[in-house]
Design a protein around this nucleic acid. Sequence first.
DNA 1: ATAAAATCGGTTGTAAACAATCGATTGAAT
DNA 2: ATTCAATCGATTGTTTACAACCGATTTTAT
Lengths: 84, 84
Amino acid sequence: MKRIRKTEIPQAVIELGNRIKDIIKEKNLMPKNVAYDAGLDVENLRKYIKGIQEMKITTMLKIASALEVEPSELIKDLKIDFEK
Amino acid sequence: MKRIRKTEIPQAVIELGNRIKDIIKEKNLMPKNVAYDAGLDVENLRKYIKGIQEMKITTMLKIASALEVEPSELIKDLKIDFEK
DNA sequence: ATAAAATCGGTTGTAAACAATCGATTGAAT
DNA sequence: ATTCAATCGATTGTTTACAACCGATTTTAT
């Protein structure tokens, strides 16, 4: 059956995806290789870049490693907009 | 039925838990309040502190917000030990 | 123009996060 | 000594991440 997302994707997730996208572009990397280096499926990496799917901490660390950037660079100033 | 974890908890997750624990202690915060401010169940916060459960990016951001620290401070120098 | 990579939208099985609850124990403060 | 918070282990329903695959289309490079 159709798998529907019930919750909104947080803005920070979108922003994180954009940063990954930008770094890939700046460093002239290939998503295919980045995915491989991070131990991810290319399609899933694409989902992170598009902000369709949220990632776990360790996934972020793997991607940072594959991009050869500090994890901090990826999450720096990411704001979480949450309703308490 | 028993819910058994199939994969190993990465060391970075343990380390992240320790940092959260330390900050709570240093700042004389109450886990109860931190959990509330982060919009989490106390028991789940405990799982993160113990490193029993891995968190998503946004959860980390919420916890950083509740602890009033920069997200970068939580993940700084976290190393991921992964087998490609 | 053709080949390789990227992008897209969708699907599916499985593992794990998330939320919440329970009972019991331990530690600390009044 | 009693109250409150912390800690622990365990459980459960629901949602989501993860991994993988597919077919189609678009972009990029040779």
